[in-house]
């Protein structure tokens, strides 16, 4: 397989795009770099899991949980809102292709392709949400336990 095309280029693209998104969300430059690294990390983990032959949805789940862990840790460390890193890190996972294909098959009236693509897009969005859910809930629990014992 072509490492440059399938691994390095997506990481570079998601890094640049996440910095540009940082500008749109008004994030300071030094936070932008860290957020961009988070996006690259997500991408690498996603590609890694995908290459190991796991199903697509579970890859999205793991990538989303990884970026949530990264965002929570960075936010605790630098005392910034978790959002700042989470939003940027998740954006490269957005299933733009599936959503677009859903819309195109809707226009073309192809109901088989429409339901297939739509189910896939919803499934991906759901797995990303579940990844974030799982990690954030766990982090809240850990935070509460730490607060109680301290």
């Amino acid at each position: 397989m072509d490492i440059l095309r399938e691994m390095i280029l997506p990481c570079i693209y998601s890094f640049i795009a996440s910095i540009a998104f940082g500008v749109q969300f008004n994030i300071r430059f030094r936070h932008m770099l860290a957020a961009g690294i988070g996006a690259v990390l997500t991408q690498l983990i996603f590609i890694g899991f995908e290459m190991s032959g796991l199903g697509q949805m579970i890859c999205y789940f793991f990538a989303a949980s990884a970026v949530s862990v990264y965002a929570e840790l960075m936010a605790r460390r630098l005392h910034v809102p978790v959002n700042m890193y989470l939003v940027i890190g998740i954006i490269p996972l957005v299933p733009g292709g599936n959503l677009y294909n859903t819309m195109i098959s809707f226009v073309g009236g192809d109901i088989d392709s429409f339901s297939h693509q739509f189910a896939e897009a919803v499934g991906i969005a759901g797995s990303i949400a579940m990844g974030v859910f799982a990690v954030s809930a766990l982090m809240r629990l850990i935070g509460m336990i730490v607060k109680q014992t301290a």
């Binding site: 978790v82 989470l86 939003v87 733009g96 677009y100 949400a129 954030s136």
Partner: peptide, 22 residues
């Protein structure tokens, strides 16, 4: 279309939604 539409994706809205639910 896919590339340019990414500018309109409600990323912050969705993330806030998940975090508020949690």
């Amino acid at each position: 279309i896919i590339g340019a539409s990414m500018n309109l994706v409600p990323g912050v809205t969705l993330t806030n939604c998940m975090r508020d639910f949690i």
